[in-house]
Design a protein around this nucleic acid. Sequence first.
DNA 1: TCATTATTGATAGTAAAGCTATTCTATTTG
DNA 2: CAAATAGAATAGCTTTACTATCAATAATGA
Lengths: 225, 225
Amino acid sequence: MATLQLLMNENLFVRDPQETELGRKIIQEGIAMIDDLGFEKFTFKKLAARIDSTEASIYRYFENKHRFLVYLIAWYWNWLEYKIDFGTQNIEDPSRKLVIALRIISEKKQRDPFFPDIDEEALYRIVIAESDKTYLTKQVDEDNREGLFRGFKSLCKKIASFVNEVNPDFQYPHSLISTVLQAAHQQLFYAEHLPSLTNLTKKTGDLHQQNEEFLNELVFNTIKV
Amino acid sequence: MATLQLLMNENLFVRDPQETELGRKIIQEGIAMIDDLGFEKFTFKKLAARIDSTEASIYRYFENKHRFLVYLIAWYWNWLEYKIDFGTQNIEDPSRKLVIALRIISEKKQRDPFFPDIDEEALYRIVIAESDKTYLTKQVDEDNREGLFRGFKSLCKKIASFVNEVNPDFQYPHSLISTVLQAAHQQLFYAEHLPSLTNLTKKTGDLHQQNEEFLNELVFNTIKV
DNA sequence: TCATTATTGATAGTAAAGCTATTCTATTTG
DNA sequence: CAAATAGAATAGCTTTACTATCAATAATGA
């Protein structure tokens, strides 16, 4: 099987981690560790110990742990966009494209053999719990200027364009889609930790499918004239 | 004018800050400081210096800075619920109640003379930028068990009940409202920092009003049969 | 093949953050 | 008036988030 590489914005790293053994190890074990400890308890020192390297070496790949998180989350959005491109190619009907995008967003994530270094299931949990922290900072504007959020913006734009094809009169395609992308994760988080904030529930079957149905209602009811 | 006090869950603090001069100062200046520096750069040490007190003294009121944030955000949700109760009393029509709730959620916040100690405008900015951090932690479940998120859950429940009155067949009232509460802040944040993720824009007039219209479309289109 | 230059490891050090503990004084409160 | 409490002052500890320096090793290229 062909092994792919997603092209990442150069500002996301100091040295490209996809190009060296150590770099790939940082990514792999970093994902496992953030998944384990959560982002606040995660440190480069701990990660260095885990991969039998040193803090200083990790700093040669990532400026700091915030950038590291931004990198991982950006990878995820790039991956989703690639999956949506893949899943919607040769499809004309915009409604169908939208349905497919919503499915891809909400479906249970499994390891993608095209990217053997990345544990997508763990990364998905990280996205759910930590992705907001990438932009909820005082340096958003700087980070944005450096293009760190390009992946997310590009994904949002793409799906918003499907919305626009379905109903060109709808005034808030970007707002709707950014809301939906957020909701997709949030609802799963709530189902797990704050169940009174959601109607998704493990009791009545597959969470991801319920989530997909909820998002479909939200999107299609909102934009249908 | 009568001065009110919102009743806060006791687990939110060590000593009730509403009851002493120092406590109120911590709240007041703490809000100003988080608004200024952002939550990550904010520390009890800096706050102590600002109010001419000591770190140790602040620790007598709040277990740590995370709890302090949770307290402030909880205060905000309690305040909103109080405003919605106030604004919807004696109104029967559930659609109107829902419209009012959405207005209150999305409207520009101004200082409320009933609560002279709190700068609601600054607190609103904090909510927009920091509120997610209250629950996006590894200790959510513990914090939730202690009832720290009661305010938000109660607000969500109330508005979801309006939705339910409007359309008892709609299956996702809580999911819809938690999504909307989130979106209300998120869209303003995006408009300010990541404008390509939203259709709200300062160019075409009042952001808050556009936000209200977006949320109305989202909610009423979604639940209308 | 030899030199050079990247890469990593080892080690050290620093400022700040996030606490905890102790003692002392001023002030309530019973 | 005694006893409890609030707060100030001070100190100290561990961890985090870096930065810097230097040596060892691997890769490369002339």
